Amino acid sequence: MQLEIRPDPTEVGRARRWARSRLAGSGIEAGDPLAETLILLVSELVTNAVVHTGLPAVLRLSLPCVAAESAPVRLEVADGSGRAPVPRCAGDDATGGRGLALVDGLADRWGWSAEGAGKRIWCELDRCTAPRELGEGCGASAPPYGDLAYEAV
C-alpha cells in the first residue's frame, strides 16, 4: 500500500488519516498502542520529508495480515532528496528537531538508504500485544511513553 505525498504540510494529516484507515484490516485496532505508535511515526517521517525536502514523497505501509502476527509492521517514506537524514539535538525551547529521536526511541528498528537520486527512510514495529518501554523490545509491562501525553490526530 502506498500514498503519494505532495510537498505541502497539510499532507501530514492526510497521511495519518490514510494510515489509520488501513490498520483495522490488518488486525491492528484504533486504540491499540501499536496503532498509536505507528500513526506518530507516520506523522514524524512524512513531516520530515515535506519540511526538509520540499519535494513529493511516497509513503508505504507493510501491514501483515492478522495470521502473521509475528511479522513486523514496516513504514517507509521515499523522497527525491539525496540529503541524508541527520538527527539533531534540539534545545529545550526549540519547536522542532526531535523527529528522528522519536523514531529512534519508538521504532524497534529504523534506517535509511539511497534510492536513485533520493532516499528511503524506513522503520519497523514488532507486533507485540504488551506495551513496551521507550527503547525496549516486546514484553515490557510499563506504558510505552512513560509520563508523556500525546494524541495523534
Rank of each mutant, 00 (worst) to 15 (best):
A24D: 08
H52A: 05
L34P: 03
D32M: 07
G54E: 02
T10A: 15
T129V: 11
G82A: 15
E76G: 04
E11C: 01
A30Y: 01
S21V: 02
E133M: 05
R17C: 06
V86E: 08
R88D: 12
P7D: 07
Q2H: 03
H52F: 14
A149S: 10
A90S: 15
L45H: 11
A24M: 06
L63G: 01
A152S: 12
A90F: 14
A114I: 13
C128A: 12
W112Y: 04
L75G: 02
G135N: 07
V42F: 05
L59D: 11
P131E: 05
P33Q: 07
G118M: 07
G99N: 08
D104R: 15
P131K: 00
C138A: 01
G135W: 01
G27L: 03
R127M: 04
A90T: 06
R88L: 14
A117R: 13
T95E: 13
E29K: 05
G54A: 09
C89Y: 15
V12W: 09
P131M: 00
L100W: 15
A24Y: 05
E4W: 10
T10D: 15
G99F: 13
D147F: 04
D93F: 14
L23M: 14
V66P: 13
P144I: 02
A90P: 14
R6P: 00
E115Q: 14
G111L: 06
L106P: 07
T37R: 15
Q2M: 02
R132M: 02
D126F: 03
R74M: 05
G13P: 10
E136S: 15
C65Y: 13
V73M: 03
E69D: 13
L23V: 01
R83L: 15
A142S: 07
P9K: 00
A24L: 11
G31L: 11
L41M: 11
G118N: 14
G27V: 10
D79A: 09
A84L: 08
D32W: 02
S70M: 06
P143S: 00
P33C: 12
R88S: 13
L148E: 01
C128N: 04
G25W: 07
V51K: 12
G54K: 03
N48S: 00
G54W: 06
A49P: 08
A94N: 03
P7C: 08
A130N: 04
E11R: 06
G137Q: 04
K119N: 09
D93K: 01
P64M: 11
D93M: 02
C123T: 02
W18I: 03
S113Y: 04
G27A: 08
L41K: 12
A71G: 02
V77M: 03
C89V: 15
W110M: 00
G13N: 11
G27S: 02
